[in-house]
Protein backbone atom coordinates (compact mmCIF):
# COMPACT_ATOMS: atom_id res chain seq x y z
CA UNK A 1 0.00 0.00 0.00
CA UNK A 2 2.77 2.45 0.88
CA UNK A 3 4.37 1.65 -2.46
CA UNK A 4 1.10 2.53 -4.21
CA UNK A 5 0.95 5.86 -2.40
CA UNK A 6 4.55 6.58 -3.26
CA UNK A 7 3.91 5.93 -6.97
CA UNK A 8 0.79 8.07 -6.81
CA UNK A 9 2.34 11.07 -5.09
CA UNK A 10 5.57 11.19 -7.07
CA UNK A 11 3.76 12.35 -10.22
CA UNK A 12 2.25 15.32 -8.45
CA UNK A 13 5.40 17.13 -7.34
CA UNK A 14 8.69 15.22 -7.22
CA UNK A 15 8.41 13.89 -10.80
CA UNK A 16 5.77 16.24 -12.15
CA UNK A 17 5.62 15.45 -15.88
CA UNK A 18 5.54 19.08 -17.00
CA UNK A 19 7.62 21.01 -14.47
CA UNK A 20 10.20 18.35 -13.59
CA UNK A 21 10.35 15.78 -16.39
CA UNK A 22 9.46 18.25 -19.18
CA UNK A 23 7.34 15.61 -20.89
CA UNK A 24 4.26 16.43 -22.93
CA UNK A 25 5.14 20.10 -23.31
CA UNK A 26 3.60 20.33 -26.79
CA UNK A 27 -0.03 19.77 -25.70
CA UNK A 28 0.67 21.68 -22.49
CA UNK A 29 1.65 24.75 -24.51
CA UNK A 30 -1.17 24.38 -27.01
CA UNK A 31 -4.27 23.67 -24.94
CA UNK A 32 -3.48 25.78 -21.88
CA UNK A 33 -5.35 28.81 -23.29
CA UNK A 34 -8.31 28.34 -20.95
CA UNK A 35 -9.05 26.43 -17.76
CA UNK A 36 -11.90 24.60 -19.52
CA UNK A 37 -9.53 23.19 -22.13
CA UNK A 38 -7.02 22.24 -19.42
CA UNK A 39 -9.68 20.29 -17.49
CA UNK A 40 -10.88 18.54 -20.65
CA UNK A 41 -7.37 17.62 -21.69
CA UNK A 42 -6.64 16.35 -18.17
CA UNK A 43 -9.71 14.10 -18.28
CA UNK A 44 -8.62 12.71 -21.66
CA UNK A 45 -5.00 12.13 -20.67
CA UNK A 46 -5.93 10.63 -17.29
CA UNK A 47 -8.32 8.14 -18.90
CA UNK A 48 -5.84 7.11 -21.61
CA UNK A 49 -2.95 6.88 -19.15
CA UNK A 50 -4.96 4.77 -16.74
CA UNK A 51 -6.25 2.46 -19.47
CA UNK A 52 -2.91 2.00 -21.20
CA UNK A 53 -0.97 1.51 -17.94
CA UNK A 54 -3.40 -1.20 -16.81
CA UNK A 55 -3.46 -3.08 -20.12
CA UNK A 56 0.28 -2.81 -20.74
CA UNK A 57 1.09 -3.93 -17.23
CA UNK A 58 -1.34 -6.86 -17.62
CA UNK A 59 0.14 -8.08 -20.91
CA UNK A 60 3.80 -7.30 -20.16
CA UNK A 61 4.75 -10.98 -19.78
CA UNK A 62 3.36 -12.11 -23.14
CA UNK A 63 4.73 -9.23 -25.23
CA UNK A 64 8.19 -9.93 -26.69
CA UNK A 65 10.66 -7.07 -26.50
CA UNK A 66 10.97 -6.63 -30.26
CA UNK A 67 7.31 -5.73 -30.79
CA UNK A 68 6.64 -3.88 -27.53
CA UNK A 69 6.56 -0.36 -29.02
CA UNK A 70 3.98 -1.24 -31.75
CA UNK A 71 1.87 -3.02 -29.14
CA UNK A 72 2.03 -0.01 -26.79
CA UNK A 73 1.02 2.34 -29.60
CA UNK A 74 -1.96 0.16 -30.61
CA UNK A 75 -3.16 -0.01 -27.00
CA UNK A 76 -2.72 3.74 -26.46
CA UNK A 77 -4.36 4.75 -29.74
CA UNK A 78 -7.34 2.51 -29.01
CA UNK A 79 -8.00 4.40 -25.79
CA UNK A 80 -7.42 7.75 -27.50
CA UNK A 81 -9.96 6.91 -30.20
CA UNK A 82 -12.49 5.94 -27.55
CA UNK A 83 -11.95 9.25 -25.73
CA UNK A 84 -12.18 11.20 -28.95
CA UNK A 85 -15.47 9.57 -30.01
CA UNK A 86 -16.97 10.01 -26.55
CA UNK A 87 -15.97 13.70 -26.39
CA UNK A 88 -17.38 14.27 -29.87
CA UNK A 89 -20.67 12.68 -28.91
CA UNK A 90 -21.22 14.14 -25.45
CA UNK A 91 -19.13 17.33 -25.15
CA UNK A 92 -18.86 18.70 -28.73
CA UNK A 93 -17.73 22.15 -27.58
CA UNK A 94 -14.74 20.67 -25.76
CA UNK A 95 -14.04 18.38 -28.70
CA UNK A 96 -13.89 21.42 -30.99
CA UNK A 97 -11.68 23.38 -28.57
CA UNK A 98 -9.11 20.60 -28.13
CA UNK A 99 -8.96 20.02 -31.89
CA UNK A 100 -5.90 18.16 -33.12
CA UNK A 101 -4.44 17.81 -29.60
CA UNK A 102 -7.02 15.19 -28.67
CA UNK A 103 -5.89 12.59 -31.28
CA UNK A 104 -2.31 13.64 -30.57
CA UNK A 105 -2.60 12.22 -27.04
CA UNK A 106 -1.54 9.02 -28.84
CA UNK A 107 1.98 10.32 -29.23
CA UNK A 108 2.02 12.24 -25.96
CA UNK A 109 5.40 11.36 -24.53
CA UNK A 110 4.04 11.13 -20.96
CA UNK A 111 1.88 8.16 -21.87
CA UNK A 112 4.45 6.29 -23.92
CA UNK A 113 7.12 7.08 -21.34
CA UNK A 114 5.00 5.68 -18.50
CA UNK A 115 4.24 2.57 -20.56
CA UNK A 116 7.87 2.00 -21.37
CA UNK A 117 9.48 3.07 -18.10
CA UNK A 118 6.88 1.97 -15.59
CA UNK A 119 3.88 -0.14 -16.63
CA UNK A 120 5.93 -2.66 -18.63
CA UNK A 121 8.04 -3.42 -15.53
CA UNK A 122 5.63 -3.11 -12.61
CA UNK A 123 2.47 -4.70 -11.23
CA UNK A 124 -0.98 -3.61 -12.37
CA UNK A 125 -1.74 -2.16 -8.95
CA UNK A 126 1.34 0.07 -8.85
CA UNK A 127 0.80 1.03 -12.49
CA UNK A 128 -2.63 2.36 -11.58
CA UNK A 129 -1.04 4.52 -8.87
CA UNK A 130 1.57 5.73 -11.33
CA UNK A 131 -1.09 6.59 -13.95
CA UNK A 132 -3.27 8.51 -11.49
CA UNK A 133 -0.30 10.41 -10.07
CA UNK A 134 1.17 11.29 -13.46
CA UNK A 135 -2.25 12.18 -14.90
CA UNK A 136 -3.10 14.46 -11.99
CA UNK A 137 0.38 15.99 -12.02
CA UNK A 138 -0.02 16.78 -15.71
CA UNK A 139 -3.48 18.15 -15.01
CA UNK A 140 -2.35 20.31 -12.09
CA UNK A 141 0.45 21.81 -14.18
CA UNK A 142 -1.94 22.44 -17.08
CA UNK A 143 -4.52 24.08 -14.83
CA UNK A 144 -1.93 26.37 -13.19
CA UNK A 145 -0.57 27.46 -16.59
CA UNK A 146 -4.01 27.94 -18.14
CA UNK A 147 -5.26 29.86 -15.12
CA UNK A 148 -2.60 32.56 -15.59
CA UNK A 149 -3.00 32.58 -19.37
CA UNK A 150 -6.77 32.90 -19.23
CA UNK A 151 -6.99 35.50 -16.47
CA UNK A 152 -4.19 37.71 -17.81
CA UNK A 153 -4.73 37.01 -21.51
CA UNK A 154 -8.48 37.66 -21.56
CA UNK A 155 -8.90 39.67 -18.34
CA UNK A 156 -11.57 37.36 -16.97
CA UNK A 157 -12.04 33.75 -16.02
CA UNK A 158 -14.95 31.37 -16.44
CA UNK A 159 -15.31 27.63 -15.93
CA UNK A 160 -17.79 25.64 -18.01
CA UNK A 161 -19.77 28.74 -18.93
CA UNK A 162 -19.98 30.04 -15.35
CA UNK A 163 -18.35 33.44 -15.18
CA UNK A 164 -16.15 33.72 -12.10
CA UNK A 165 -14.50 37.12 -12.17
CA UNK A 166 -13.30 39.95 -14.36
CA UNK A 167 -10.18 41.91 -13.48
CA UNK A 168 -10.67 45.70 -13.21
CA UNK A 169 -8.18 47.12 -15.75
CA UNK A 170 -7.24 43.94 -17.62
CA UNK A 171 -10.91 43.27 -18.38
CA UNK A 172 -10.80 46.27 -20.70
CA UNK A 173 -7.26 45.82 -22.00
CA UNK A 174 -6.22 42.16 -21.68
CA UNK A 175 -2.65 41.06 -22.38
CA UNK A 176 -3.78 39.12 -25.45
CA UNK A 177 -0.26 37.89 -26.14
CA UNK A 178 -0.44 35.54 -23.15
CA UNK A 179 -3.32 33.69 -24.80
CA UNK A 180 -1.18 33.27 -27.95
CA UNK A 181 1.64 30.67 -28.31
CA UNK A 182 4.49 32.96 -27.09
CA UNK A 183 2.50 33.53 -23.92
CA UNK A 184 2.59 29.81 -23.17
CA UNK A 185 6.41 29.82 -23.19
CA UNK A 186 6.54 32.96 -21.05
CA UNK A 187 4.11 31.62 -18.46
CA UNK A 188 5.82 28.21 -18.22
CA UNK A 189 9.24 29.89 -17.96
CA UNK A 190 8.14 32.29 -15.25
CA UNK A 191 6.40 29.53 -13.30
CA UNK A 192 9.54 27.38 -13.45
CA UNK A 193 11.66 30.27 -12.22
CA UNK A 194 9.21 30.84 -9.39
CA UNK A 195 9.11 27.16 -8.42
CA UNK A 196 12.88 26.99 -8.39
CA UNK A 197 13.09 30.13 -6.25
CA UNK A 198 10.56 28.59 -3.84
CA UNK A 199 12.58 25.38 -3.71
CA UNK A 200 9.76 23.19 -5.07
CA UNK A 201 11.95 22.35 -8.05
CA UNK A 202 15.55 21.50 -7.14
CA UNK A 203 18.39 21.74 -9.59
CA UNK A 204 20.39 18.55 -9.42
Amino acid sequence: MSRFRKELSKGLVASNPIFILFLGLCPALAVSTSVDNALGMTAGVLFVLLGSNIIISAIKKIVPNMVRIPVFIVVISTFVTVVSLVFQAYVPALYAALGIYLPLITVNCIILARAEAFASKNTIFNSIGDAIGMGLGFGAALIIISFFREILGTGSISIFGTHLLTLPVLGEHPMAMLALPPGAFLVIGLLLALFRRMGVVRSE
Partner: peptide
Protein backbone atom coordinates in the same frame (compact mmCIF):
# COMPACT_ATOMS: atom_id res chain seq x y z
CA UNK B 1 5.31 -11.70 -32.32
CA UNK B 2 3.37 -11.47 -35.61
CA UNK B 3 0.49 -13.50 -34.24
CA UNK B 4 0.43 -11.48 -31.03
CA UNK B 5 0.38 -8.09 -32.76
CA UNK B 6 -2.33 -9.28 -35.17
CA UNK B 7 -4.40 -10.49 -32.26
CA UNK B 8 -4.02 -7.23 -30.33
CA UNK B 9 -4.96 -5.17 -33.39
CA UNK B 10 -8.05 -7.36 -33.88
CA UNK B 11 -9.16 -6.90 -30.28
CA UNK B 12 -8.62 -3.16 -30.62
CA UNK B 13 -10.64 -3.02 -33.87
CA UNK B 14 -13.55 -4.88 -32.29
CA UNK B 15 -13.58 -2.56 -29.25
CA UNK B 16 -13.48 0.51 -31.46
CA UNK B 17 -16.32 -0.63 -33.68
CA UNK B 18 -18.43 -1.10 -30.55
CA UNK B 19 -17.57 2.42 -29.37
CA UNK B 20 -18.33 3.80 -32.82
CA UNK B 21 -21.67 2.03 -32.80
CA UNK B 22 -22.61 3.54 -29.45
CA UNK B 23 -21.50 7.10 -30.24
CA UNK B 24 -22.36 7.42 -33.95
CA UNK B 25 -26.04 8.26 -33.51
CA UNK B 26 -25.25 10.75 -30.77
Amino acid sequence: PVILVTFIVLVSAVLLSFTDDITRGK
